[in-house]
Each structure stands twice: as C-alpha cells, then as structure tokens.
Nucleic acid binder design. Structure first.
Length: 133
DNA sequence: GCCAACGTTGGC
DNA sequence: GCCAACGTTGGC
C-alpha cells in the first residue's frame, strides 16, 4: 500500500466538509506532477489530509475509495474518490519542518505540490506525532 | 526551442 | 499584504 498527502484550503474544502459529505471526488487538481500521483493511487491507499494556508497542518487521514478517472469537465485531468478515516490531532507545518525524521518529505521539498507521496517511515512517524499529541 | 511576462499557490 | 517558488503562455 502506498501513502500520500493531499492538500486543501479550508475555505474551499475543509476536513469538516469531508466528514459531513462522508466522501468526495478529489477533483480540480491541475498540476502534471500531482496528476501522476493521483493516477498511482490504489483503492485502500491512505493519505494525510493537509490543511493549507490557514494554520497549515496535517489534520486527518483519508482512504482512497476509487482510482483515478477522467474529469468529466476536462478529460486531460483526473480525479480519485476519497473518504474520511479519522481526524488527527493537528501536526503543524512548523512541527514537520522542525523534525529531522520528516526533513525529506515532498511536502517540504516541493511546497506547491497538492498531491504528494509520503514514505512509509514518514507516514508512521508523523502519525505517531499526532497520536502522542 | 528559448525566455520574459504573468498567474497561482501557499507560507509568513 | 508580501513575496518566493514554480507552472503556463506567448512572442520571437
């Protein structure tokens, strides 16, 4: 199983919106690198839900419930379906940046990438931080 | 194909 | 609000 991180601005779609909806189409991604990552997702893959812009932090875990399909509004692009698994105690960007075990995360390396892979050891470590806090 | 201008993302 | 990073567009 692969692990990922997906970003959303709370003003456009928040963790609470996802919980309310019970799942959503993760569409609107318009970046070629992010598209490669969406296409690589399998059903059952887990992703951190990252809140950008306003108090940037990882705030939850989601599960991929359908693989990539063309966006009906623009079939050059794709979307997957995700559903909430559980909220996490927020792990802030500040904490992530300060942690040597997370220094290689794609989140930090390419800060504008909205769909990024997470290495297994990074996944375990970051999830551990949320559970410790 | 190069590159300057421009637009968007996202941290601060 | 500012600005760095970086992707896209368009003139040449």
């Amino acid at each position: 199983m692969n692990h990922w991180l997906i970003k959303s601005e709370p003003a456009s779609y928040s963790w609470d919106d996802l919980v309310r909806d019970g799942g959503t189409e993760w569409d609107g991604v318009r970046n070629p690198t992010a598209r490669i990552n969406l296409r690589a997702m399998a059903v059952g893959d887990l992703a951190f839900f990252y809140r950008s812009v306003t108090e940037p932090a990882v705030v939850g875990i989601v599960r991929v419930s359908r693989t990539a399909q063309p966006d009906p509004r623009d079939d050059k692009w794709v979307s997957v379906r995700v559903e909430p698994v559980r909220p996490l105690a927020p792990v802030t960007l500040k904490t992530i940046k300060a942690d040597p075990a997370l220094a290689a995360m794609e989140l930090l390396r390419q800060s504008r990438l909205s769909v990024a892979p997470v290495r297994p050891e990074e996944w375990t470590h970051l999830k551990g931080l949320a559970e410790a806090g």
